[in-house]
Design a protein around this nucleic acid. Structure first.
Lengths: 121, 121
DNA sequence: CAGAATCCTTTACGATACTG
DNA sequence: CAGTATCGTAAAGGATTCTG
């Protein structure tokens, strides 16, 4: 048995790394309906601080997934929007959403059972 | 604009949190072909220490995605295998794999461009 | 070979306060 | 309102060593 060719491909690891933090996927998903301002994003997402939102958006910008620009003419502030590349991520992320609805409860149940067992030890 | 109903669903966040670390998705993927022993997993994955692999497997076990048992009769050691629940994750994870092949280069290019710009600053 | 025990470094995340 | 600056904590990851 040798190294997995798929996992050896650095692009695959890159994709996994994109999701390997708490907020990237969440923020991309929160932008799926179109441009949004930071305050709006924070309301949508819930539980994310201004600082962490900014950091996440910078990361996504650097990866070419999100664009920052001045808000629509006549409105103050800025807007963030998914790039074309960023929008291609919506499909796989959505697949996880579907998975969550179908199997999230099972994971939660397993986790609680494991914790009970842990507590009984 | 109010909180996103999808993101407010704790199951959705749970799904994202499952992937919110470096190794969970990688290890699940490495187990897609069937039972495997830790040493085999380490070879397949590459770059993961024994300690981190064990931690990851424990996490996945607690979430009901992976099962641990003695290796096949006649062989020493232990084996890990995806549970039925764990196997349901292969589809969405695979979707990311496809995405990586199609768009990984674009992300890498964007990242490099951003770093060059960063360096020029 | 499986994996637990240590030790260490880094960073992600969170809370808060502050600036233009 | 957007974003930065600080500070603090917790956790993840890595390297190494040791044991059954």
């Amino acid at each position: 048995m040798t190294a997995d060719p798929f996992l050896a491909d650095c692009r695959a690891r890159l994709a996994f790394d994109l999701l390997a933090n708490t907020w990237n996927a969440v923020v991309v998903w929160a932008l799926r309906d179109g441009p949004c301002r930071p305050a709006g994003l924070r309301r949508r997402i819930g539980g994310i601080s201004s600082k962490v939102l900014t950091e996440t958006l910078r990361r996504l910008q650097a990866d070419g997934l999100v664009e920052r620009r001045a808000a629509e003419p006549g409105r103050s502030g800025v807007e963030y929007e998914l790039t074309d590349l960023g929008r291609t991520l919506l499909e796989p992320i959505g697949a996880f959403g579907v998975w969550a609805f179908e199997h999230g409860d099972e994971v939660a149940a397993a986790r609680e059972a494991a914790e009970r067992e842990e507590g009984a030890r």
